[in-house]
Design a protein around this nucleic acid. Structure first.
Length: 139
DNA sequence: GCCAACGTTGGC
DNA sequence: GCCAACGTTGGC
């Protein structure tokens, strides 16, 4: 199983919106970046991901699960863009802020720390465990 | 609100 | 195929 990080601007799509979609989940649509799309193409059902709020909050606030592999993005006719579906698993106990990630030497190679603009990012097994520890949730 | 970083577009 | 111009993102 692989691990990922999904970034969202809460005014556009927040963790609460995601939770409200329940077991059904929601398309992670609107991605118009090849790197992010390629990451989604690599995802399998059951992969886990962090849900990150950008801009004002800048923190990992929840855990999600991929519930559908990449398929055409319904918000565009352009066949280049695909997206997966994700569903909320649980909120974290303690939000893990960007600053906390930057301050932890174990996370210095994390994509979030080095390339904050990529909206769908891979997370390594080690990073997953470290962040889960800080967040107060089981890996 | 500003601006740096990055990705994409389009002219050549 | 290169590169300048432009638009967008997101941290500060």
């Amino acid at each position: 199983m692989a691990f990922w990080l999904f970034k969202s601007e809460p005014n556009t799509w927040s963790w609460d919106d995601q939770v409200a979609r329940g077991e059904t989940g929601e398309e992670w649509d609107g991605v118009r970046n090849y790197q992010a799309r390629n990451n989604m193409r690599a995802m399998q059902v059951g992969d886990r991901g962090f849900f990150y709020h950008s801009m004002k909050e800048k923190a990992i606030v929840g855990i999600v699960e991929v519930c559908a592999v990449a398929h055409p993005d319904s918000t565009t006719d352009d066949p280049r863009w695909e997206c997966v579906d994700i569903r909320a698993i649980r909120a974290v106990k303690t939000p893990v802020t960007l600053q906390m990630c930057k301050d932890d030497p174990r996370l210095h190679n994390m994509v979030l720390v080095n390339n904050s603009r990529l909206s769908v990012q891979p997370v390594t097994d080690d990073e997953w465990a470290v962040v889960c520890g800080m967040a107060g949730v089981a890996p």
